[in-house]
């Protein structure tokens, strides 16, 4: 028996929108402490890790650990039928080949349930080693989205370099080059507007902008984004979900052979 009631249903809608274009199918792993998902994109270049802890739910019941394979496109179609203010409940029964999404309007005058077919997914759960990062940049998520979008109109790859001067995003393409430098800026009215650079050692790495732009679909989930880099490791682009968990995107770098 599985029953999860999320008052802020729009959060689940936003989570789905942030990952559905990167990952087609994924196993949702439910346990008493919350639910998680880990999946690679079909090209095996990026990996999504999602965690939503049980504390964030108004009601959370999961009698035994269970894994449900879902097509994220289909799940997104169903969740789009929920209003932004709706309360969403996920229900499942042991051994069932379906999951039910129930949507309640805030005034309880409209209640809908959508039953979705589950699927068997052969997933490879990868071990992500703990890492010490050379540099961690925390910045407004909207600013990061703007930079990725702007640079993608010039080139296909971005070089992200962190030095004590700041963080530089560079690209080059047929029409020319672009460099955007952000300096650490903590003298802002609101903490979420700050750019904070923690650097142990300078680092410079190259990534595909197509993936970075896909990650920025998570922007509505959080005012800030954290970018963690070390040479020879995938970059981690993390959007925290207030008091509940996170969506993390890992992207393998482009490297000289």
């Amino acid at each position: 028996m599985l029953e999860l009631r999320l008052v802020q249903g729009s959060l689940l809608k936003k989570v789905l929108e942030s990952i559905k274009d990167l990952v087609n199918d994924a196993n949702f792993d439910f346990s008493s402490s919350g639910f998680s998902l880990q999946s690679m994109d079909s090209s095996h270049v990026a990996l999504v890790a999602l965690l939503l802890k049980s504390e964030g739910f108004e009601h959370y019941r999961c009698d035994r650990n269970t894994s449900m394979g879902m097509n994220l496109g289909n799940m997104s179609k169903m969740l789009k039928c929920a209003g932004n203010d709706d309360i969403i409940t996920i229900k499942g029964d042991d051994g069932s080949d379906t999951v039910t999404f129930m949507f309640e309007s805030p005034t309880q005058d409209k209640i809908a349930d959508f039953e979705m077919k589950l699927m068997d997914i052969d997933s490879e759960h990868l071990g992500i080693p703990e890492a010490e990062y050379h540099a961690i940049v925390k910045m407004p998520s909207a600013e990061f989205a703007r930079i990725c979008k702007d640079l993608a109109s010039i080139g296909d790859t971005v070089v992200i370099s962190v030095t004590k001067e700041g963080v530089k995003f560079s690209t080059r393409g047929d029409i020319g080059t672009a460099n955007i430098v952000l300096r650490q800026n903590t003298t802002v009215d609101k903490p979420e507007d700050a750019t904070v650079i923690e650097m142990n050692e300078p680092v410079s790495m190259t990534f595909a902008l197509r993936y970075m732009n896909s990650f920025t679909k998570a922007t509505p989930l959080s005012n800030t984004v954290t970018i963690s880099m070390s040479p020879d490791l995938p970059v981690v682009v993390e959007y925290k979900i207030a008091e509940m968990g996170y969506v993390r995107f890992y992207l393998a770098p482009k490297m000289e052979e």
């Binding site: 490879e124 990868l126 071990g127 080693p129 995938p234 393998a252």
Partner: peptide, 14 residues
């Protein structure tokens, strides 16, 4: 041109 690495070359299957 740098080559795109696979995520599988960094993270291990159990």
């Amino acid at each position: 041109m740098p080559r795109q690495k696979s995520i599988l070359s960094f993270f291990q299957k159990p």
